[in-house]
Amino acid sequence: MSLLVVEGLRKAFGGVRAVDGISFRVEAGESVAIIGSNGAGKTTCFNMLCGQLKPDAGRIMLAGRDIAGLSPHRIWRRGLSRTFQVAATFRSMRVRENVQLALLSHRRRTHGLWRPVVGLPAAEADALLAQVGLAARAEQPVAALPYADRKRLEVAMALANAPRLLLLDEPTAGVAAGERRALMDLISDLVRTRNIGVLFTEHDMDVVFGHGERVIVLHEGRLVAEGPPEAIRADPIVREIYLGTGEQTC
């Protein structure tokens, strides 16, 4: 059984078919990239997987159970975790507290009224922070973190519920070129050791071809190509509509 099975996913906004019948699979431990120009339907597709949008039609089976149309917090509890294109962290908290909150949520303890957060799973939070290389910054306010470190923090938060599937929305966007590789290597290591399936969108082709074991190409809401990176790189249709080097473009 595949970890994620998407079948016939559709979503229209006022007559515009943003996602027009997409089907694909992701296996456990596999890393899949979704590419496509702006407006191709990547973000809409992502938002449906995470529960921020309700699909008009189609099924989203996570480990055999349909999650289509559930609210984001329910989907998270089923084992799908995500990061955001613009790193979303809790800016009024310290670095460690961000991770603590994610851990508390995983244990359904966010309604605790009495014991202060300070002492709650701090050791585990620190362990997660150490894995993303932020151990030394645990006490700092998030606002003081450089942007690339906020992306790392988001990864640590996303791992707090021991997810089965991780969705990364442009994981290296806004990160300086020199730090991209380190960030992606980190993510690859973490998911490999935990056998997590990864689905990511990305504009940086180095990242796509370097870290995606399989690449899915969307165009105008449809899946137009799917395959290993070498095949996609050579695919003439993909070259024309996305990579922009087709012969008949003008």
Binding site: H73, A88, T89, F90, L101, T110, H111, P116, A160
Partner: peptide
């Protein structure tokens, strides 16, 4: 200062992020 307050604050700081971490 308890988890309840932190989860509430999380919803204020970044609502989508909090939802995507299982906070209703």
């Amino acid at each position: 200062a308890a988890p309840f307050g932190f989860a509430l604050r999380a919803g204020r700081d970044a609502g989508d992020r909090a939802e995507a971490l299982g906070v209703d």
